[in-house]
């Protein structure tokens, strides 16, 4: 270290700073969102359902930072609650869809043959119906509530994960290390569980994170169409939906804030997923190659 001629070689400057900033901002926003969603409802005694008809459609002010809606409900706590519901739907749906998609993709890829053909035709069948239409079909079979919405998202979102996992498994299946496992007496089950699945889990995890924003948008879309959560419940989709009327009258805040609450967290989560994807890049994993 004392040698003045010691130099540190920096990697190409163009490829460095910007993604880092993006990752930090994404992480900070995501942390803030999670904190808000987990802590605020308990820490701050605000009632998101409290109606005050005398104070309807007030623009943002010190008392109501996000303003109030057409029946005088404070939009700040409603937005936070709505985000909470949306995030819950997003995370739960992404998890379930990933588990189902990974299982189907792994079985199809690992077994091949007729099992692969049947499962993939099933995936094709589901994909051939427009997603929203399929989602609407599912929610209309049940009473409005959180779980039908989750189910609707799952039904439409496991397909891409199944495809990704199957493709990954297929490419891994021809690797010599799988040959070595077969030659070492490993059963089909063991090859799949010990060698193939662990290799695809990072990809599947990434797909799951990327799915959360999708799921949030799907929920919002369903609620906006009045098919998602019960209309009285604070959900971002519901709020934008019910604010449509006032937007035409020039009152911008009842749509703006819930809208921002849909867009900003989804961008943040997508940003984090992007950073994760970069980490998965094998070139970066081997910093030192001798």
């Amino acid at each position: 270290m004392a040698d003045p001629r010691t130099r540190t070689r920096m990697a190409d400057p163009r490829t460095r700073t910007r993604p880092r900033t993006r990752t930090r901002v994404s992480a900070a926003v995501t942390a803030a969102v999670v904190l808000a969603v987990l802590v605020v409802p308990f820490a701050v005694p605000l009632d998101e359902q409290a109606v005050d008809l005398a104070a309807k459609l007030r623009p943002p002010s010190w008392d109501h930072p996000f303003g109030t809606d057409e029946v005088g409900r404070d939009l700040l706590p409603r937005s936070v609650y709505g985000l909470r519901v949306s995030l819950f739907v997003g995370v739960a749906a992404a998890l379930a869809a990933t588990v189902i998609g990974t299982a189907v993709g792994a079985v199809a890829g690992a077994l091949g043959g007729w099992a692969d053909r049947v499962l993939m035709r099933l995936v094709d069948l589901f994909s051939s119906v427009p997603h929203l239409l399929l989602g609407i079909f599912v929610v209309t079979m049940f009473r409005p509530g959180v779980w039908p919405v989750v189910a609707s998202v799952v039904v439409t979102h496991w397909l891409s994960t199944a495809r990704i996992v199957r493709a990954e498994v297929l490419s891994l299946r021809s690797r010599p290390y799988i040959d070595a496992a077969v030659s070492g007496g490993a059963s089909r089950w063991r090859v799949t569980v010990r060698h193939l699945l662990p290799a695809v889990l990072p990809q599947a995890g990434l797909a799951a994170v990327l799915m959360i924003p999708h799921a949030i948008w799907h929920e919002s879309a369903l609620s906006f169409l009045g098919l998602g959560l019960p209309t009285h419940q604070a959900s971002l989709g519901n709020m934008v939906q019910s604010a449509r009327g006032s937007l035409l009258a020039g009152d911008w805040w009842p749509t703006l804030f819930p809208g921002l609450f849909i867009i900003v967290p989804t961008l943040a989560v997508a940003g984090l997923a992007g950073a994760w994807r970069e980490r998965l890049n094998p070139r970066r994993r081997s910093e030192l190659s001798l």
Partner: peptide, 23 residues
């Protein structure tokens, strides 16, 4: 393999990773 000969080549081309120091 692993005796450092490829690292030497990378050093000449300026293609070492960030945690490398040369003298």
């Amino acid at each position: 393999s692993g005796c450092g000969k490829s690292v030497l080549a990378s050093a000449l081309l300026g293609l070492l990773p960030r945690n490398a120091e040369t003298t």
